[in-house]
Structures are given as structure tokens and as C-alpha cells.
Amino acid sequence: MASVALAALTYVASWFWIGQGPGKNDSPAQIAGCAISLIVIAVVASLFLHPALGALIGTLAFTAAWSVHASATDPTGLWPVGAMIALVGVFAGWILVAGLTFGLRTVVTRRRAIEP
């Protein structure tokens, strides 16, 4: 269930920030908003899913949403190149954020177990 929720949230975040029409995805504020949304989703997802699984699901959902929008609005036909760049970039960022969150959670949990 967490996997389905993660995919849906990621897809919706991508659509909300980037996929709302042609020419609307070049604003730095939209890109920053999308990145912040994905960071928050990655942190929450890593509390419920293994970081690698969350990264895989989140990356595929984001890339799918991005690709749907890009394929419909890109007149050059180069959207698959952008999709591959998005795929690699989102996966790398997601692994970093989820791995840090997972590691921090592990440290905090162990400290609480040690303290009397």
C-alpha cells in the first residue's frame, strides 16, 4: 500500500509542478517547488519503505509523469533524452535523501535503545 501511495504522490507532485501545460515548466520556482516536494516525499517514504525501493518507485513515477508531459509538448522529439536525464538525476537525488534519512533514523533508534 505504501508503494502505491508513493507512486501516486510522486506522480501528482510532478504533474502539479511541471506538467501543467506547454511552456510552463521553465520557471525556476516551479523546478525548486518540485524538488522540495520530492525531497519531502523521499523523506517520508524512507520511513515506511527501504530506501532503494522508494527510490525506484519514486523515480519511475516521476519519470513517467515527466515523460507524458514532455512527449505531448516537445516539438523537437528529444524528450527521451530529457527523460533519461531526469531518470538518472531523480534516482541519484532520491537515493541520497532516502539513504541519509534511513541512516539518521537508524542512529536515533539505536541511541534510544541504549539509553536507560
Rank of each mutant, 00 (worst) to 15 (best):
W15S: 04
F16P: 02
F16L: 11
W17C: 03
W17G: 01
I18Q: 05
G19L: 04
G19F: 01
G21C: 02
G21W: 00
P22S: 08
P22A: 10
G23T: 01
K24Q: 09
N25W: 03
S27M: 06
P28I: 07
P28W: 08
A29M: 06
Q30F: 08
Q30T: 06
Q30D: 07
I31Q: 07
I31V: 11
I31G: 00
C34M: 08
C34G: 05
A35R: 04
I36T: 08
S37W: 00
I39N: 00
I39Y: 00
I39K: 00
I41G: 02
I41L: 01
A42F: 03
V43E: 01
V44T: 04
A45M: 05
A45K: 04
S46Q: 04
S46Y: 03
L47T: 11
F48M: 10
H50I: 04
A52Y: 13
L53C: 07
L53Q: 13
L53K: 13
L53F: 12
A55R: 12
A55F: 10
T59Q: 09
T59Y: 09
T59A: 12
T59V: 11
A61V: 05
A61Y: 01
T63W: 10
A64L: 15
A65K: 04
W66A: 15
S67V: 07
S67K: 01
S67I: 07
V68D: 13
S71L: 06
T73Q: 04
D74I: 09
D74A: 06
T76M: 10
T76G: 11
T76L: 11
G77S: 09
V81D: 05
A83C: 06
A86I: 10
A86C: 10
A86G: 06
V88F: 14
V88M: 12
F91I: 04
A92N: 05
A92H: 02
A92C: 09
W94F: 15
I95L: 15
I95Y: 02
L96M: 10
V97Y: 02
V97E: 00
A98N: 07
A98Q: 09
L100A: 14
T101E: 05
G103I: 04
R105D: 13
R105I: 08
R105S: 15
T106L: 13
V107T: 13
V107C: 05
V107M: 06
V108K: 10
R110Y: 13
R110A: 14
R111A: 12
R111H: 14
I114R: 14
I114N: 12
